[in-house]
Design a protein around this nucleic acid. Structure first.
Lengths: 180, 180
DNA sequence: GGGTTCATGTAATGGGTTACATGATTCC
DNA sequence: GGAATCATGTAACCCATTACATGAACCC
């Protein structure tokens, strides 16, 4: 299951009602981090959510632009989302999954968010030290491997910095009024 | 096609002969960047490469460990790889695809590698400025979107730095003896 | 007239994930 | 005795990619 597109889109709708086109636009903005997307999976996912009764849909006719189908999450959708979030979260430590979850983190309260970021930090630190070990004995490795290793060290270091800075900000001052 | 796992594994074998288990281990080391993998796609890909006559296979019986099946690329495999590399390369600018190509970049000559990294830099710069525009008008956005945006800016900045530094190193001194 | 943005979809194919299945060895 | 590492695989189902299909408005 591991954060399928249906789950992800439902999470997006929990923040804000959107059309399929809006979802695609959002994907596009983060495509560098989460990879390509297409209407071929977005629209079917939206239809499936409708069929399962987790969202409702309004057709909004624009004056000069094509009519948009805006989807809203409902009570049952919110319940389904919470159920999904309660699941073990799997062992997918990939950057892509992290960013997707980060995009949905508005649905978390501050304590949960902090716990999530701390868990992530531990994972990235572990991953990074694995790369460090490889670097120490990489003299014989080919150029491609060395470059990928170096790249991984650079980015993982930056991510750890970012996590620590963000955690500090979340800890010291109230970023978001505690509504939950 | 977009850099399927079969193509990727063939590229790995061009650098070094490996068993399926070795391939899995390599995936594991970079799983943070390229996502999870499983034997369920590695072994079938290896079998397919064998069937297509692009690789050969040796069974190496270990004294105390299970026998390993080590795969070697052959002439036809090298040709197929070159053909694949000649393809338009698609529009997949995702980090995952970049890292996978980087791992195979040992097969490129220095000029090709520099061109690839320069192309990548242009893509990331474009992606980054898209995020910058969003940040300027993100006051209303929810926390998750703001965090993902901030994260994206941090990492894209770091990647651009890395690309520039690496390009400089490749340009000023000969990192790799020019064999091609 | 052609390209881009907006906006929605369908259908087939293929590939990948997940789960299942096995077995020896070593370390706690 | 149980867990982990080494090592190989199969099979089914599902999901996602790709390509196809349509149409209006706007700008160069």
């Amino acid at each position: 299951m591991a954060l399928g597109i249906q789950h992800f889109i439902l999470g997006l709708l929990a923040n804000q009602s959107m059309s399929g086109y809006d979802v695609k636009r959002l994907f596009g903005r983060f495509r560098w981090l989460i990879g390509p997307s297409s209407f071929g999976n977005i629209y079917p996912a939206l239809h499936a959510l409708l069929d399962e009764g987790l969202v409702t849909m309004d057709v909004i006719a624009g004056s000069d632009r094509p009519p948009r189908k805006v989807y809203h999450i409902n009570e049952r959708g919110l319940e389904a989302l919470e159920e999904w979030d309660r699941e073990p979260a799997g062992s997918d430590t990939s950057l892509k999954t992290f960013v997707m979850r980060l995009l949905l983190s508005g649905n978390l309260d501050r304590r949960e968010l902090i716990a999530y970021l701390e868990q992530r930090r531990a994972e990235v630190v572990a991953q990074r030290s694995e790369l460090e070990v490889l670097t120490d004995r990489a003299c014989d490795e080919d150029l491609g491997r060395r470059l990928a290793l170096d790249y991984g060290l650079a980015l993982s270091g930056k991510e750890i910095d970012w996590l620590e800075q963000t955690l500090e900000e979340l800890g010291t001052r109230v970023v978001y009024s505690e509504v939950v």
